[in-house]
Amino acid sequence: MVRFVNLTLAGITSGAVFAAVALALVLIWRATRIVNFAQGGMLMFTTFLAWSVIDHGGSYWLALGTALASGLVLGAVLERVVVRPVESKPPLNAVIVTLGLYVLLQAAAGMIWGDTPHSYPPAFTIRGLSVAGERLLLSPFDLFVIGAVAAVMVALTLLFVRTDLGLRLRAAAFAPEIARLQGVRVGRMLTLGWALAALVGSLAGVLVAPSVFVGPAQFDAMLVFGFTAAVIGGLDSPAGAVVGGLLLGCALSYVSGYVSSDLVTFGALAALITVLMVRPNGLFAASAGRRV
C-alpha cells in the first residue's frame, strides 16, 4: 500500500511538470496551430539563464523571475523573427522550423555553458513528508511544484474566459479574419500567445530542474512526455493538458514500479494509443466529430 501511495505521489509530481510543458504546447497550438518542438530547447535555455543568476549569487526567486521574464521575451522574439514567416505556410514547415530552433538552442547552450549538468536548487526542502511514521515520496518542494502548476492553470483559465485580452487572444487564434475585422491586432495577439506559452514553459523548466539537473540535453524527455500529455488531454484544452500530464505521470510511475523501468517509454506509447483509440482528439476534445 505504501508502495502504491508513493508511486502515485511520484507520478503526480512528475505529472505536474509534464502538465506545465503540455500547457505551454497547448497555448501555442491554440494561438498559432503549431506544435512547438522548440519548447524543450526554450525552457532549457531559460533555465540555464536562471541557473546563471543563482551561480552568481542571486536568490531562488530572482532566478525564477529571470527565467519567466526571459521566457516571455524569448517567446515573443522567436515568434516575430522565425515563426511568423512560416505561419502562413504549410504546417509542416513550422514543425521543421521549430525543430531547427530546438537544435540551435541546444547547440547554443552547449557552447555557452558546456555539457556538464549543473545542480539547481529547489525552492523548499526535498525531504519527504512523514505520515504515520512512513516517509512519503512527496516533499514540500513537490507541493510547491503542484501548486505552481495549478495556479498557472487557474490563471490561464481566468485570462482566457474572464478578460477582454483573453477574448481577443482566442478570437485571433480561432477566427483571425473576423477578429481582424473587429479591430483585433491579430499579429500582436499571436506574439503574445507565444510569449505566454514560453513563460509557462520556462516555469516548467525551473520546476523540474532540481530533479533532472541543468544541461543542454537534460530536458529532452520533458518535451516528449509534455507533448504526449498534451495529446492525451487534447491540444485545445488547458484543462486537458493538466489532466493528461497527471495521468501520464502516474501511468509511467506505475510502469516503472510494477512492470519494468525499461518499459517506461513504451508505457507512454501504450497510454497514448489507448486514449487515442477511444478519443482520437484527446480526452478533452471540444467536439468528437471529425473535421473535414
Binding site: 508511486l7 530533479s211 529532452d220 524527455a221 517509454t265
Partner: peptide, 20 residues
C-alpha cells in the same frame, strides 16, 4: 536488484523498492 534506463530521470520507483 533494480536497474535504470539512462535518459529516464525518474528513479523514485527503484529507490523506493530498495528502501522498502
Amino acid at each position: 536488484r533494480q536497474t535504470y534506463q539512462p535518459g529516464n530521470t525518474d528513479v523514485g520507483a527503484q529507490v523506493q523498492a530498495i528502501a522498502q
